[in-house]
Amino acid sequence: MTTLPGSSPPPPSARQRERNAYRRRRTVRRVVVGTVSSLVVLGLAAWVITSAPGWPRVREVYFSGHHARESFPAIWDAFWLNVRLFMTVELIVLPLALAVAVIRVVPAPAMAPFKFIAAVYTDVFRGIPTILVVMLVGFGFPALGLAGVPTSLFWLGAIALTLSYGAYVAEVIRAGILSIHPTQWAAGRALGLTYGQTLVRVILPQAIRNVTPPLMNDFVSLQKDTALVSTIGLVEALRAAQVYQANTFNVTSMCVAALFFIIVTIPLARFTDWLTIRSMRRQGGL
């Protein structure tokens, strides 16, 4: 693998040069085949769709360039609300879910009441459709009139999404903790670490790493579900698109909103892939 300093590797043999040339030709051939077949398949799909009798009408109603440009600024502004919302919720959900998961796993007897509360919380909020949680919190909390309960719609929406997603993410993290082989607990305790030290230094880092892909998946799902706060009257991207559609009878604005959601989820998906590959490489799996 490594060469000693000062010595250069011997020139490749004639046979090796042939092999290298063959590999280069094969690479070129593969790229050409891939490109051509992609063009053919995509072209065919485009042709089938655009040659359909209803296409001109669909293009005008769903993909009108004019309406896309017209609706863009309002949706762009409204989308910032979605971004702020999911950023806020992600930041609160992680520690909340971690706490719930740990409470459910830890055997300390003093934790018994909290374990019960944590179990009820995850059961209840995983059971209720998120849109229902949003409505119950959005309309119910202000009606309570309790001092200290936020009245801003943004925070009511954030609380609702946090409650719902906290339950999901807590279960994902708990599954991660339970997926770590008991021998890791034994090794940590045998080293003299306390239960808490073993949990924090040995178990959780591995658990979180194992569940990063499903965790990120939940976050992608959360980004989309920020659209649900439109039901309590917040003007986010979907609502802005609906307003435009109601005024113009053109659905293009909805497609623009969809595009926004797609664009923010792609980086997250790539980031997840990168994280996964990095940890595999670090541990010598690649």
Partner: peptide, 24 residues
């Protein structure tokens, strides 16, 4: 242990220093 049970998310150095640093 039979199955080594090293901590896979830590380097060799971190595996070796965890106990002395955190326990002792």
């Amino acid at each position: 242990f039979q199955a080594f049970n090293l901590f896979p998310h830590m380097t060799v150095m971190q595996n070796l220093t965890l106990g002395p640093r955190r326990v002792k």
